[in-house]
Design a protein around this nucleic acid. Structure first.
Lengths: 302, 302
DNA sequence: TCCAGAAATAAGGGATTCCTTAATGTGCGC
DNA sequence: GCGCACATTAAGGAATCCCTTATTTCTGGA
């Protein structure tokens, strides 16, 4: 299986014919046909079969196309990435809650203060150690991460509580995507309380889960200082459970001192500054349009 | 540049030595060294240089590593993806607003009703036509998409309004990530009103922007029926502007009848059912834990 | 039925890949 | 300096890739 074979497959699939793909690639028709034949042999699937309207994808071909497209695009990107002149970027990954509330403003402020070019990403807690050791990320924000070569440093102590509307239902639990991360704080809480899966409803994000809770749809786990405003206004009240309030800490995890980059050190230093703590305590102000960069989803292979 | 060369690079970078990588890959040491040498020659960067603590990444190598890891991972995934037995999945992409509020519950209900296996993704509006024509997505939810071979069908008419707290500030605009999509409804509104970039603040999601608006931090564009509850409770009020209320429609875009899959047709049919409309009108109930599948970020380039 | 268009296959050649063993650098601690 | 561990280079060979031209097979339409 070769990058150019995958490229030929992608072109044929998109253009609907071997001939058109050959023209687009600037090679002869059999060249494309053979690349395709070899890929078919290697993968054991016809991938594309001829039909009246042109070449049409098989089931396997359909599943392959997305992956192949990405591989081809990344191959082109790889060549561009090593060219000099691009600044080194610091990669900060965060688990669900921190990615939603804290990572964006924090990294934005860091970039502003230190003239850096850091980007944020979301990742499952379980993948973080591997992301760090494989150098795909420089800093991981989330729970403490054990592991050889890893150093976790607490960056904020906070309390995990359960909230609901004053007269809302108490039979359902409302969580954001981070509630499905078994290693995250919300996931641990639900497990401690033995909440059955059928009583958990997942929302597109944590804020939406809190909004639903405020409207009386159920109970939501929450980091105390992030819902302080809603509690003060009476939209949400704290609900007593066997496990809350639970003291949790947010950690920043990096590689050992010698192995991590200078930028990672700079970010760690930044995290101890008062303004960074301030942002983590009340991060609800958004970030300026000019500094916004959409977060990426980071994952590794299994 | 070859998949196996990239694989050798990733192994050396992760393990810190050519010898260890060779052992892990089950080949001789010069085999790895040569793969690396060819990659270096091809890309014009040393990528990894020897040092006291093992092989250490150069700047270019650091930038390459993430991309190379993804390529290698996807290469392995590609082989697995074509194996039979995996059900065909329907890929639904949505722009920011629909991805956050509508796509999840909608696809969840569709899967439940039709015993299908559809997944949701987020994409920029500008990328949607290419995602559809390249078969990376089956259905796109968002604004009307012009383009050869594409068919847009309206699925819901709604109104775009501007909201703020009754006595909140009116000098800043608060948007979710979709506000930075120039082709999205919020982006169009900001352009129509000639809001300068410096007066726009971006939040992690649309719900968080509305929450900030309810706390008086500024004005937020909103789809009327999604904030109806907050307006009824007095947390938000409609703000008059030159361009709002603006009538907008949500569309489902697919390929032409012959070119699209049967699953795409089934989803289109589903969208016209009363329960689908019901979900789009009041989607704020989350989805059951067992049916939750984290959305993926879909992009042509990565 | 025959034909035109398109895909697949055959055959061949040059380049590249990828592995081996053997030899050569290269940095570090003694 | 010397030995050691490691990376690199050299040389050679089998396999693969990737392109070409020529030929064959398949399919749908006149």
């Amino acid at each position: 299986m070769t990058l150019s074979q995958l490229g030929a497959f992608v072109f044929v699939a998109r253009l609907g014919s071997v001939k058109a793909a050959a023209r687009a690639l600037g090679v002869s028709e059999p060249a494309v046909s053979q690349s395709l034949a070899q890929l078919r042999r290697h993968l054991g699937d016809p991938l594309l079969v001829r039909s009246a309207g042109g070449m049409v994808l098989t089931e396997g071909g359909r599943r392959l196309l997305g992956i192949a497209s990405q591989i081809v695009a990344l191959g082109a990107e790889a060549v561009a990435a090593v060219q000099p002149g691009r600044p080194a970027r610091l990669h900060v990954v965060a688990d669900g809650v921190l990615a939603e509330h804290v990572a964006g403003p924090l990294v934005c402020l860091f970039n502003q203060r230190k003239s850096m070019d850091a980007g944020t990403g979301t990742a499952a807690t379980a993948e973080m150690p591997l992301l760090l050791t494989s150098r795909l990320a420089d800093v991981a924000l989330g729970p403490q991460l054990p592991g050889p070569g890893l150093v976790s440093r607490p960056i904020l102590r906070c309390r995990l509580i359960a909230v609901a509307a004053p007269h809302g239902r108490r039979d359902h639990w409302l969580v954001g995507p981070s509630g499905t991360d078994p290693a995250g704080a919300s996931g641990r809480l639900l497990r401690l309380l033995r909440v059955p899966e059928s009583h958990v409803r997942v929302f597109a994000n944590q804020t939406a889960a809190w909004k639903a809770a405020a409207e009386g749809a159920g109970i939501a786990p929450a980091t105390a200082h992030l819902v302080a405003g809603a509690i003060r206004r009476g939209e949400l009240v704290m609900v007593e459970t066997a496990a809350t309030p639970m003291a949790v800490s947010w950690y920043a995890t990096v590689l050992e001192p010698g192995a991590r980059s200078a930028a990672a050190d700079a970010f760690l230093d930044f995290l101890t500054t008062p303004s960074a703590t301030q942002v983590m305590r009340s991060p609800d102000s958004g970030i300026p349009r000019a500094r916004f960069r959409p977060p990426v989803h980071v994952s590794i292979w299994s």
